[in-house]
Write a protein that binds this DNA or RNA. Structure first.
Length: 228
DNA sequence: GCGACAG
DNA sequence: ATCTTGTCGC
């Protein structure tokens, strides 16, 4: 699983072209171990006013949701945030955190978009293609597209997210009274499976456990430990 | 030209 | 993403 991210030269055109090429490698069919044994959540946070990128990876038992391991990788930030090019900024740290886990997960839940992206390569899809792991994007807001219909305020309800006539993901009511999550397949996961898999790992919070725990670790919000 | 815009 | 107290609502 190699393929470094190109250096940031300010040339967004080259990066967009790179995304289009990688998007062709995305596979939207279920292709993961069944039943799932482990699942991992990934998220990124920043330190030193953004100078340091901090990625967190939390490995859980897919059945009990017990935490099996958690890691934090810190790398110097190489690129600024540019809408649509987020993966180039966060991927290096995410891959570093993945490499620190004792074993690769059967499925990865990444904070951000899967294929619900202008060129169908959000950070979760990029992460999946580069690592080769099955992945799903779990974002807290929409980047592109619009919901097809109103969403019921019932736990587990979901409605298609479309860009033109193409379905690129779902709006998922993971918790009543809360804004819906934007769920989209990243790699090796079929469109219909994404919301079902995310709900499988969701307990009493808006975010599914893998991503929720990675969120707290990446944002130094970890109750208990102080650092990695 | 005018907004919109994951984290 | 990050800076931050109190406050509204289930």
């Amino acid at each position: 699983m190699n393929s470094p991210v190109p250096d940031w030269t300010g040339d967004t055109g080259a990066l967009r072209a790179e995304q289009e090429a990688l998007a062709r490698q995305v596979r939207l069919r279920d292709d993961f171990r069944k039943p799932l044994r482990t699942v991992a959540g990934f998220d990124v946070g920043f330190e030193d006013d953004g100078a340091t990128t901090r990625a967190a990876a939390v490995l859980l038992d897919a059945d009990s949701l017990a935490v099996l391991d958690q890691q934090v990788a810190r790398l110097p930030t190489r690129m600024p945030y540019v809408p649509g090019l987020l993966s180039f900024r966060e991927l290096p740290a995410l891959l570093a955190a993945l490499a620190l886990l004792p074993t690769a997960p059967d499925l990865a839940l990444v904070d951000g978009q899967g294929i619900a992206h202008p060129r169908r390569l959000g950070v979760a899809a990029h992460f999946g293609v580069i690592s080769g792991l099955p992945s799903i994007g779990v974002a807290k807001s929409v980047l592109v597209g619009a919901p097809r219909m109103a969403l019921h305020d019932m736990r587990g309800a979901f409605t298609p997210l479309r860009d033109d006539r193409e379905q690129i993901g779902w709006l998922l009511r993971s918790k009543p009274g809360c804004l819906p999550l934007v769920v989209s397949p990243g790699h090796r996961v079929a469109m219909p499976s994404a919301p079902e898999l995310v709900m499988r790992f969701t307990t009493r919070y808006r975010l599914p456990e893998p991503t929720r725990l990675a969120d707290r670790l990446a944002s130094r919000r970890d109750p208990g430990a102080g650092d990695d």
